[in-house]
Amino acid sequence: MNPIQEYFFRINEPERSTLLFLRKKILESDTENITETLSFGLPFFKFKKKMLCYLYYSKKHQKHYISFYHGDRLDHPKLLSEGRKKFKILLVDMDEDLPVELILSLINEVKQHIK
């Protein structure tokens, strides 16, 4: 098992399946330019080798989230900055439908800010 698979394996169900589905959608959204790497022990997604977003867990909110680079340039009511300068997070509520369209549109918006 590679380190990225190990990261997801340590997460309990049903969160694991939800995050693996989200991971798959992100990677499939741009198979030529989006890659995945493990940085700081977290799954990071990169666009043309530059930071795009990553997945993590918020102890404060008790929820997993996706964090978007260039979040300071994103404007959406569901995004939280919580004192971060370059990132904004979108909490993933496991009891609700995953907002795939919103996530993919935010990823596309971040891609526009990457040179």
Rank of each mutant, 00 (worst) to 15 (best):
L38W: 06
T31V: 12
R73Q: 15
I107Q: 04
P14E: 07
K46E: 15
M94T: 14
T18K: 13
N108M: 03
L42V: 00
K86R: 14
N33A: 11
L74I: 09
E96W: 00
G71T: 10
Y69E: 09
L74G: 07
Q5E: 15
L55F: 13
E109R: 05
F8H: 04
Y54V: 07
S105W: 00
C53M: 07
V100F: 09
K88H: 07
S17I: 01
Y65Q: 06
L104F: 06
Y56C: 08
T31Q: 13
G83M: 10
Q62S: 15
P77V: 08
L55K: 03
K49G: 02
V110N: 04
E32N: 15
R10A: 11
Y57I: 11
I4A: 14
K115H: 12
L19H: 05
E15M: 09
V100M: 08
E15P: 00
R16N: 11
D97I: 00
L90T: 04
H76L: 04
F40V: 05
I11N: 10
D93M: 04
K49E: 15
P77G: 05
D30F: 11
Y54D: 03
G41K: 03
H61V: 05
L38I: 15
P3G: 00
R84V: 00
K24A: 06
S17E: 13
F9C: 01
D93Y: 02
G83W: 10
N2V: 02
R10V: 01
I11L: 12
Q62G: 00
V110P: 05
L27Q: 11
V100Q: 06
K86V: 08
K111Y: 11
G41E: 05
H64V: 00
G41N: 10
M94C: 01
S105G: 01
P99T: 05
K60A: 11
K111I: 14
D72I: 01
L27P: 09
Q5H: 14
F40L: 06
K115A: 14
H64M: 02
R73D: 10
S39M: 14
E109D: 12
K88V: 04
F68I: 07
V110E: 06
T35K: 15
L74P: 11
V110A: 09
F40R: 14
G71I: 04
D95G: 01
D72L: 03
E36S: 08
Q62W: 00
L42G: 01
R84F: 05
K48R: 14
L79K: 04
F68A: 04
Y69I: 14
L19G: 02
K48I: 12
R73T: 11
E101L: 05
F87L: 07
L20A: 00
R73N: 15
R23E: 02
E13H: 09
L74Y: 10
P43V: 09
I66W: 02
P3Y: 01
L27W: 08
I66C: 08
K115T: 15
K85C: 00
K59N: 15
K24D: 13
L27V: 12
P43C: 10
F45R: 07
S81Y: 03
Q62A: 13
Q112F: 07
H61S: 14
D95Q: 11
R23Q: 11
N33M: 04
K25V: 07
L91K: 08
F8Y: 15
R73S: 15
S105E: 13
L74F: 12
F45S: 09
L104T: 02
N33I: 01
L104M: 08
F44K: 02
Y7I: 09
K115Y: 07
